[in-house]
Structures are given as structure tokens and as C-alpha cells.
């Protein structure tokens, strides 16, 4: 069984095609790293999964729920951490969390329990009634992470998660992702931080020019690139770097 299943996805903006026949799956308890150069189509893949950019062709499913046919059931099962924090300057941290919880139908008891745990983990307990315009970029990113982990989805879509986070918050975030993996959740993580991705991810999907260059575990990628004992950065350089 696959948690996230993407088949023959074509997508883009207006009349500009960006993605060309993208297919991959995220299995239960798996962290899939989405790797590629700037403009490769990583963000478009993520936007297509979230329904922000409607796919022109292909299917995107979470369990049996297709994004086109059953968008609400699909979106109930997915959490998103964007690359750039997207917060209302006019709403406090607490109001953002309440808005997220309400949108996902989280009951009050569970909401308060989860909120307290996450605020403590990311050391934001004393900022509950603050507006985001007084937060640093890292703090804003923590708010996005807390919003995504507030409820209980089965797939996490994480775009450049380490941008702006301090080392401790990065470690806490990685622990959180690993915990979700142990719980059987699926995680699709787009990142340029290859050494961290190599340590955290189970498999990788290398994207370039809107197409998949390679998919597999570290060992499979090494074999594919014909690199013995190379790191992810070496494999990336061999498979994608030359074509950038």
C-alpha cells in the first residue's frame, strides 16, 4: 500500500509546461527526499500535490483519495510546511494555531494538548499572543512546523524545512519527522541540504528540468550513477549537476 501515489503527472503554469510525466510513491514509514537544482520542478510537484496548481494530466492520490475527485478527503490527510513562512501579520500565534485546528476539525482537548507539546518543543510558549511581525524568520518557520504537526495527517509535504531554523530547532524538527516515520506516516521532503537529507531520508527522487532523473535508495542511486561509496552530493553532481 502506498500513502502518496503520483502517476504520469504533467503540470505547469498557464501554458508553460513544467512537469513532464512524473511518477513516484511514498510508502508508510518512509521519508522520501525530493532533490534537484533550482527550477527543476520540485516546488511545482509540491504545489500540484496540494492542489495549488491543478495538474493538467495524471493522477495524485493519498490512499484511495484522488486530488481531483475527492480534494477535501485528500487534503484532510496531508500537512504542508512551506519554504517561506506564510502567516497573517494581523493574527497572533494562538489565532493561527486555532485557525489551523478549526480547519482540520481538531477537537479542543486534542488541540490544547498538541499545542502545548509543540510550543514547548520549539520554545514558543511565551509567544502565544504575539503577532508574527515581531518574529524572526526562524520563529515564523517554527510556527509553520507547529501548524503542520498540530493535527494527524498521514502524509507530510515539507519544502526546504531547514531554512531559517537554528541548529537546535533543526534537530528537534528531524526528531519530529523521525517520530512520524515510526508512526507509519509518509514524508516527502524537498531540500538542498544534501548531507542532512542523506542522513534522514530513506529514498530519493532526483528531479531535473521537470523530469525524474532517478529514484531509489542511496545504494540504488550509487549503482545508477556508477559511483562507489559516493555521498548524495557526489551522486547529485554526477546525475544532475552536469545537466544544470
Amino acid at each position: 500500500m502506498n500513502l502518496l501515489d503520483i502517476q504520469n503527472l504533467y503540470s505547469g503554469y498557464d501554458k508553460v509546461k513544467v512537469l513532464n510525466d512524473i511518477s513516484f510513491r511514498v510508502k508508510p514509514g518512509e521519508i522520501l527526499g525530493l532533490i534537484g537544482p533550482n527550477g527543476a520542478g520540485k516546488t511545482t510537484i509540491i504545489k500540484s500535490i496540494l492542489g495549488i496548481v491543478p495538474p493538467s494530466n495524471g493522477t495524485i492520490k493519498i490512499l484511495q483519495y484522488d486530488i481531483k475527485e475527492n480534494p477535501l478527503e485528500f487534503k484532510r490527510r496531508v500537512a504542508y510546511v512551506p519554504e517561506v513562512p506564510l502567516l497573517y501579520d494581523e493574527m497572533t500565534l494562538l489565532e493561527h494555531l486555532e485557525f489551523t485546528a478549526m480547519s482540520h476539525g481538531l477537537d479542543k482537548e486534542n488541540f490544547e494538548k498538541r499545542m502545548k507539546e509543540l510550543l514547548k518543543l520549539f520554545r514558543l510558549e511565551d509567544k502565544l499572543h504575539y503577532f508574527p511581525n515581531s518574529f524572526s524568520k526562524g520563529m515564523k518557520q517554527k510556527v509553520m512546523v507547529i501548524c503542520a504537526f498540530l493535527y494527524d495527517p498521514i502524509v507530510y509535504i515539507i519544502d526546504e524545512p531547514f531554512m531559517g531554523l537554528d541548529p537546535r530547532a533543526t534537530m528537534d524538527f528531524i526528531d519530529l519527522i523521525k517520530l512520524k516515520k515510526e508512526e507509519g506516516k509518509g514524508i516527502l521532503m524537498s531540500t538542498h541540504i544534501l548531507d542532512t537529507a542523506e542522513k534522514v531520508c530513506d529514498r530519493f527522487i532526483l528531479v531535473n528540468c521537470g523530469q525524474i532523473e532517478a529514484v531509489g535508495t542511496m545504494e540504488e542511486l550509487r549503482q545508477y550513477g556508477n559511483i562507489k561509496d559516493g555521498s548524495l552530493a557526489d551522486v547529485y553532481d554526477k546525475l544532475v549537476g552536469d545537466k544544470e
Binding site: L50, L72, P82, L86, Y88, S103, H104, G105
Partner: peptide, 18 residues
Amino acid sequence: AIEDKNNSEKILNSLPVS
């Protein structure tokens, strides 16, 4: 203007809200 300034459409559209 507030929706535009905060670029909030992406988050709104990722929520389970039609």
C-alpha cells in the same frame, strides 16, 4: 489586500476547505 500581502492563498488552498 491582506490576502495578497501575506501570500495566504497557498496556505488557504492547502487546507481541507473547498
